[in-house]
Amino acid sequence: MAEIVCVGKTTRDINVEIKRLIARGETDIRVKNPGARHNLGVAILESVELTFDGSVGYYCAGMIDGPTVKVRGSTGWGLAESMMDGTVIVEGSAGNGAAASIRGGTVIIHGDAAARLGVSMKGGLILVGGNCGYMAGFMAQKGTLIVCGDAGEAFADSMYEGICFVGGSIAELGNDAVIEKPTAEDLAFLESTLSRYLPQKIEIHDFKKVISGRKLWNFDKDERAVWREAL
């Protein structure tokens, strides 16, 4: 295991050090006292394990493809934005826009996620142990979003595709979001996913499934009212 101590270092120093250690062949890198600095661990394309021993700031683990990034604290805005593949685990809570536009990989948040979780996601899996805020899953095109607690307003608004599960209450469904009963297969998937990724045991019986009503896929003049509402 290799260690980077952040005290006295700039963000650039730390990121350069991470890249240098990866180039040297290190596969387990621990970053001590990140102090909520921004832009840490961005664009890492190797299958290494990178652990931040504390909170990180904005845009942590953005544009990654392959690594496992752990945050032993909370994160600011834009966690794992546009990631291609890999795993990101946050032990605390995440700020706005977590896992926005991801194309693959897995983002696990043990605590809460703030507004705009997983907007425009195009693949992958997002799992939140707590609650999520306003407008999660907005315009999602593919992938799975699981929220074990309560979801905020405009949930799953204008989704193209993608599947959402919510364990608690939904403050308000977004445009063209439709609730349906999870299948036996869905429940089996939830059971295995939650027990695999979350430290706490969560009952899955009351989980709701939310999918796209597909009414916004094509314009139909008979559905003018739906469009007026959506736009």
Binding site: G76, A114, Y134
Partner: peptide, 9 residues
């Protein structure tokens, strides 16, 4: 200590 982002409203 734990830090969290405030939600809308």
């Amino acid at each position: 200590y734990e830090v969290r982002e405030a939600q809308a409203k």
